[in-house]
Amino acid sequence: MKKTIILFTLFVGMFSYAQLKNVDYTDDNQKLEGFVATPKAPHSKKAGVIVIHAWMGIDDHSKESAQDLADLGYYAMVADIYGVGNKPESTAEAGKLAGYYKSNPLEYQKRIQLAINELVKAGANEEEIAVIGYCFGGTGAIEAARGNLKVKGVVSFHGGLGKDANRETTPISAKVLVLHGADDPYVPTVEVSKFQDEMRTAKADWQMNYYANAVHAFTHKDAGSDNSKGAAYNQLAAERSWQAMKDFFVELF
């Protein structure tokens, strides 16, 4: 009897998990391929969330996040920032691609906006949109706020926080949540300090959570567990940050 119950629970779980659907769209001549997860029980406001991948391109982690968000009732879409045929095959290639978009924020913001357009087509309310991202994608989430895209809030998971000193700081209307590894060697203290000053100058509604014993990529299970490498998975930080995001969304929507 016990075995039957377990099997039934697994069977139900398989079919309750949101399914991803490929979405083809374009940026001029560049083909893009994102993934949309539609909630079976949508949020009352049909809120939607864009998920931006880390520097190696769309991966299982970003897809699972979209599915988890859909299971929470949100329309979710993994945005394709790099475009079809441009997925990096090495960290060196990833560094070049990520560096290009960090150095060309308007191009980054444009790719995010194109994904938002597709999410709205999929059923999300254009007035109730948020953007989240991991590492490189966390930087993108903040760029959505800096660019004043039509989003209510953004969440950066262990993302880069810096911007070119020559860029003007303008008012930010979206609420900002930064989820940061307290020991992240890739985001130095000076970068954090300048980001916080930027948020104050922009009159933003911002929050920043630090997670003890966490370095870069702390939500990525495939990052290993060796903090000395600078990037490593931390289960407690991953769980706490996801809960912080959920609480933020309750307030946001």
Results as ranks from 00 to 15, higher is better:
71 D>T: 05
70 A>F: 12
88 P>V: 12
71 D>S: 04
69 L>D: 04
72 L>F: 04
70 A>P: 07
105 P>H: 04
85 G>W: 07
66 A>V: 06
81 I>N: 02
94 A>G: 15
96 K>P: 10
85 G>I: 10
86 N>M: 00
103 S>K: 10
67 Q>M: 13
93 E>C: 00
104 N>R: 11
83 G>T: 01
95 G>K: 10
92 A>M: 14
98 A>R: 10
97 L>V: 05
87 K>I: 03
75 Y>E: 05
88 P>Q: 11
85 G>L: 10
105 P>Q: 11
103 S>Q: 13
76 A>E: 08
105 P>L: 05
99 G>Q: 08
78 V>T: 09
91 T>M: 12
103 S>A: 15
82 Y>W: 07
106 L>V: 14
106 L>I: 14
78 V>M: 02
94 A>M: 09
102 K>Q: 11
90 S>W: 05
92 A>S: 15
104 N>S: 14
70 A>I: 09
100 Y>P: 04
79 A>I: 12
106 L>C: 00
80 D>Y: 01
78 V>L: 03
82 Y>C: 10
99 G>R: 06
105 P>Y: 07
92 A>R: 14
80 D>H: 03
88 P>L: 12
67 Q>L: 05
86 N>Q: 01
100 Y>L: 03
79 A>M: 13
82 Y>H: 11
90 S>E: 05
72 L>I: 01
73 G>L: 02
67 Q>K: 15
85 G>N: 09
102 K>N: 07
71 D>P: 00
98 A>V: 01
71 D>M: 09
92 A>N: 13
73 G>F: 02
97 L>R: 13
105 P>V: 15
95 G>M: 12
97 L>I: 12
90 S>L: 04
73 G>H: 03
66 A>C: 09
72 L>E: 13
72 L>M: 09
81 I>M: 12
70 A>W: 07
98 A>E: 11
104 N>D: 11
95 G>L: 08
96 K>H: 10
91 T>D: 10
69 L>A: 08
101 Y>R: 06
79 A>D: 10
97 L>S: 15
81 I>Q: 04
84 V>C: 00
